[in-house]
Amino acid sequence: MTDALVCQDLTKRFGRHLAVDSISFTIERGEAYGLLGPNGAGKTTTISMLSGLLRPDAGSVHIAGHALTQDPRAAKARIGYVPQEIALYPELTGRENLRYFGRLYGLPRRTLQNRIAEVLDLVGLTDRADDKVGDYSGGMKRRINIGAALLHEPTLLVLDEPTVGVDPQSRNAILEGVDQLVAAGMSLLYTSHYMEEVERVCKRVGIIDKGRLVAEGTKRELVSRLGTSDRVELVLDGDITAAAEKLRAVDRVTEAVPTGTSSVRLLAEGSRHLLPSFIAAVEGVATITGVEITEPDLEAAFLHLTGSTLRD
């Protein structure tokens, strides 16, 4: 069976700005793939090219074996695109919006009726189906926004920041729905600012920065790039530079860098057991007044790879 998505050397330039620089990745059937990157990294441009909304300057996209540039209708028919914004007619009801999208995808009348009922059930809006979308809450709009992309039973569902601006309860409902889709074997491309969402939903993650795919792999693979070191933030009172030098000499500490005027950041293995060694090392030059330990995670890997946090 062909992969759900294969994109090869995808490139897009806007004037002098190289928005996407030769990105390649593959999503297998039934796989949930997360695309992480700070604002302006090129995620939306990449998704627009994958969804056929933007023509790439170079590279190719195949959806379930269909080349997007050579056979756009067949390729697009296999994608369910959920945009970042709520792209629905607020004057129409939830059911009418679904009917509109179903007709765009050419679903026959009876099939469409059945699919609308199934999708409404899936997104939990059966009892509000005949209310205007303009009267829905933010979370309900997000859910029907996803539902509209599921009507034609796509091979690949592309979710661009699907939980932006929703309350925690609705966010949880959306994630549960996505979990169900993944469990049912839906192939997924998921972008989000929320690291914990990507960690929860996706098995594999691609990290995109300044238009390039800087790393790709499972969560374990990405985190392992940091080694097994913890990040330790020590707050000190005294000579920070001298303290950093002494801390660097402690066994199993690989890095000690002064940050600001009163703290030192360390990379150390098994840091929880090294606290007495840290206290002893700085004795005479500084006093430790605070400690923060972060174990290796995707956030740390992201920071390590891109030099910035997701919400920068």
Binding site: A74, P83, A87, Y105
Partner: peptide, 16 residues
């Protein structure tokens, strides 16, 4: 409103 909502772009993601 259709433009602002992104309905045109979303419609173009369909096989049309």
């Amino acid at each position: 409103e259709t433009r602002r909502l992104g309905m045109v772009r979303r419609s173009l993601a369909a096989p049309v």
